[in-house]
């Protein structure tokens, strides 16, 4: 032991260098082990992005489905190419990726009301082309049999409209039901604060 201490006091610089090298080797080994042991499969950020996308699988972004687009975003693609998701999705993506919120890229389409495909069954010739186009298997039917859309599964992606040879598929807006209806937000306060009290009264008087 005494020899070691003596050596250390004799060559302090060398000791420090050796100690640092040793520590580097140990930590390097730990990190290397952790990298192998706790290896993440796939791309976690792409998964998180995919969770935020609306999963309509419409391809309006230019990618064949939501999963490929989420992969592309993870690789640096713009976040404003998803019309079905609209502003809400852009906002969520911007929050996740800590990016600026940018307006929707109009080139890929506009934010529309939610629709579902409707097959005019008397016109359907049973060609199965729409069935093959549907990304979520929401169309039921067989060759030379009439086809129909499972409304609860339809994402409103539009992809079945184009292939139909007899043009019998329409995209209909989703009807408002008692379940989907909800109270609207009241008129924003900012619109009424400009009214002074006397104005408000006279307006009411006219209305009544």
């Amino acid at each position: 032991m005494t020899i070691v201490f003596e050596w250390i006091t004799q060559y302090p610089l060398l000791t420090a260098v050796i100690a640092l090298l040793l520590m580097g080797a140990i930590f390097g080994a730990v990190l290397g082990f952790a990298a192998v042991k706790f290896k993440t499969e796939g791309n976690p950020i792409a998964d998180q992005i995919n969770d935020l996308l609306p999963q309509t699988q419409c391809g309006q972004c230019g990618f064949p489905g939501c999963r490929p687009y989420s992969q592309a975003i993870a690789d640096g693609e713009a976040i404003n190419k998803c019309p079905p998701g609209g502003e809400a999705t852009i906002q969520a993506l911007a929050d996740l990726l800590d990016m600026e919120v940018i307006p929707l890229d109009e080139e890929h389409g506009e934010e529309k009301t939610k629709t579902v495909a409707y097959i005019h069954e008397d016109q359907c010739i049973g060609c199965t082309k729409c069935i093959q186009a549907c990304p979520v298997d929401a169309i039921l039917g067989a060759a030379k049999q009439m086809h129909t859309v499972i409304v609860s599964e339809c994402t409103g992606c539009d992809l079945c409209v184009e292939p139909c040879p007899v043009d019998c598929i329409d995209m209909l807006p989703l009807k408002e039901t008692l379940q989907s209806w909800h109270w609207a937000l009241p008129d924003p306060v900012s619109r009424s604060v400009e009214i002074i009290a006397t104005d408000a009264k006279s307006e009411q008087g006219q209305a009544a």
């Binding site: 996308l53 999963q55 489905g65 939501c66 979520v136 298997d137 599964e153």
Partner: peptide
């Protein structure tokens, strides 16, 4: 619903 669509899309793929 989007989770359901994702599952169906992946199953189809």
């Amino acid at each position: 619903k989007s989770e359901q669509s994702r599952v169906r899309f992946e199953a189809r793929e």
